[in-house]
């Protein structure tokens, strides 16, 4: 008789774990860094921002 709520708790825990994993994965995909390229002295126009 008590099995139904055990299943429910397990299902909720699994959903929370999956959601947490999705958030962690997406945050890593969105986290940025600083990258250097070598495209010559014309790279990045000085007057770009107004």
């Amino acid at each position: 008789m008590v099995m139904w709520w055990v299943w429910l708790v397990g299902l909720v825990a699994l959903a929370v774990l999956l959601a947490g994993a999705a958030v962690v994965v997406q945050s890593r995909r969105r986290s940025g860094t600083v990258i250097t390229v070598r495209r010559g002295r014309t790279g990045g126009r000085a007057g770009g921002a107004r």
Binding site: R29, S31, G32, T33, V34, I35, V37, R39, G44
Partner: peptide, 20 residues
């Protein structure tokens, strides 16, 4: 939103940003 900041080493300037 800005993801990566990209700068040109020889020119010493930001060339742009990758986005998310």
């Amino acid at each position: 939103q800005v993801k990566d900041v990209v700068f040109d080493g020889p020119a010493g300037r930001i060339t742009g940003f990758t986005l998310s």
